[in-house]
């Protein structure tokens, strides 16, 4: 072996070691232009998957479906980011409403908190600024932005800046709005996300979503129903969840008193 071959071989070896379970070789190879979600119909409608280095807007379909929308956005971020770290920009107000990012839960969802950096922005302007800074950093895979309500600062010009930053760096932007009136957004896609019932026979199953692609790709008012495999980190057709045994820690219920109000 020549002197030159050795480092090249070492690099190759480490590249092979990096190939993840899902076949991604990131971050060594530049990720492909699109990230397949995993659900064939959806990927077909998107022309192969979600575009990387682009701006994707999301909103909950109905009030009370914000956690589902957050889950779907995080799942998309994981698909887009391959193995790279994520930046989650929240607004302080949103925390009071929907709680704080929770490490054990995110880990169980498939997002290892070791890959996550959070920014708690005081207001929408700060959130946009932090997001733009993140989108300029090539080391990131995706930036999730959650502004609160419908602040004035979020206008077409501000969002356009995010689009440009995302396009220049290849980092994907996921913009999740909770409520507020519709505004024009310059994104590649727009999604309306709802929660979907579990298919499992026992307790709640894997995260499941009903999503409508409202813009981008072959947008039509078609609804996709998909389940998120937390372990494989890929979307798939719902109804995959196997039956599971509930984790009862106490003995069987002995006394039965019909309908009694407590609490």
């Amino acid at each position: 072996m020549t002197g030159r071959g050795a480092p090249a071989l070492a690099a190759l070896r480490s590249a092979i070691e990096r190939i993840g379970k899902d076949g991604s070789t990131a971050p060594l190879a530049p990720p492909s232009a699109r990230a397949a979600l995993g659900l064939d119909e959806a990927d077909k409608a998107l022309g192969g998957g979600l575009k990387r280095g682009a701006f994707h807007a999301l909103r909950p379909q109905r009030p009370g479906e914000e956690p589902a929308a957050t889950g779907f956005a995080l799942a998309c971020a994981l698909r887009l980011a391959a193995e790279r770290p994520l930046l989650w920009v929240r607004q302080a107000m949103a925390e009071r409403e929907y709680g704080l990012p929770y490490g054990p839960g995110l880990m169980g969802f498939g997002l290892d908190p070791a890959r996550l950096v959070c920014v708690e922005a005081a207001d929408a302007r700060a959130a946009l600024k932090a997001a733009e800074e993140g989108l300029r950093c090539k080391a990131l895979g995706a930036v999730l932005i959650e502004p609160w309500g419908a602040p004035k600062a979020v206008d077409l010009v501000a969002l356009r800046r995010l689009v440009l930053a995302a396009e220049a760096s290849g980092v994907s932007a996921l913009f999740l709005r909770s409520g507020g009136p519709e505004i024009a957004d310059p994104g590649a896609t727009r999604w309306a996300v709802g929660a979907h019932r579990s298919e499992s026979a026992f307790g709640p199953g894997l995260p499941a979503f009903r999503v409508t692609l409202e813009r981008g790709g072959h947008a039509g008012q078609v609804e996709f129903v998909m389940e998120w495999s937390c372990e494989q980190r890929v979307f798939r057709r719902a109804a995959h969840s196997g039956a599971r045994v509930p984790l009862s820690t106490d003995g069987p219920v002995e006394t039965i008193t019909p309908f009694r109000r407590v609490g």
């Binding site: 929770y102 490490g103 839960g105 169980g108 199953g205 009694r260």
Partner: peptide, 29 residues
């Protein structure tokens, strides 16, 4: 807390702190 096969996550992605009081109707106490 890493995900296991197809088991559903046992912890929420967001934690409401402090916990909020809810009114609950249960079959048995």
């Amino acid at each position: 807390f890493a995900p296991m096969e197809d088991d559903a996550p046992v912890r929420p992605i967001r934690l409401i702190e402090p916990p909020e009081r809810v009114e609950v109707l249960a079959e048995v106490p």
